[in-house]
Amino acid sequence: MIGQLIMTGIVAGSIYALVALAMSLTYKSSEVANFAQGEMAMFSTYVAFVMLATYQLPFWVAFGGSLLFAFLLGLFLHLAIIRRAKDPNVLNLLIITLGFQVFLYGLAGWKWGSEQRVLKIPVSQTETVEFAGLIISQLNLATILVAILLMISVYILLRFTKLGLAIKATQQNETAAKINGIPTRRIVAITFGISSVIGAVAGILMAPITTLDPNMMIEPLLKGFAAAVLGGFNSLAGVVCGAFILGIVESLFGFYISTEFKSIVAFLIIVIVLYFKPSGLFGTHYTRKV
């Protein structure tokens, strides 16, 4: 039984991990937690839905189109909105992302209404796979696999490519990156794009589990945020671990203690972590030496 519960936790954790990863990437680049991340993912998921349902395109085309849209949306957020801010400080930028969130939320509600829709995907939710004595639906298995694949891609990007090096350099010290000829503004914009793509994947994986409506990403966003806080916002490996821990704890809490109060676990975790270890479980805090 406990194995099955942990499996459920891992499925939820993979979604949280993607959201947390996306938030952490942009946070490290711009020192802003992008609260529009969830709605950007929701909106991108709707784009996939429109391509599938209205234009009858094959799933993979819709999937790719949605990710492309997400990338452009991320670029747009940075180039057209965040960068235009005059004398920006962290609080201003945070409020800008909240504003963008409300904008997208309203736009989606106006365009597609608040009714719940079904995103058709090529894996089944009812057929199951048996794996080491555990039963898991095809959809959940796909969720875990896609999430892990994406995390590995992000790892490879950051660890082995020139773009990744430029992203890390910009995140750590923007002035120093600039004087080494790294076009930091372009790099930050690309980071926003990548984050948005990761969020969109989370949205598309999330939609069949719950339903597709404008509210779908609000809870996963908060959970992903909690996971990022738990793991330590500035450590990518940390936020992924935090997400899986959160997913598993939540699942166990729901079964053994109370299903209704399952959602408070995440917020309890935020409070406890900020109280005892503000840098998170795996976060490090570098103070700059003068």
Binding site: K162, L165, K168, A169, Q172, N173, T175, N180, G181
Partner: peptide, 29 residues
């Protein structure tokens, strides 16, 4: 910088969480 001026800032400003080699590769971006 592209035209050929190198700048070593006051206080070094190396990328603390990158390895020495990665710092150099970033310099050769």
């Amino acid at each position: 910088v592209k035209m050929g001026i190198g700048y070593v800032p006051e206080g070094r400003e190396v990328f603390q969480e990158l390895s020495v080699l990665e710092n150099l590769m970033a310099g050769g971006y």
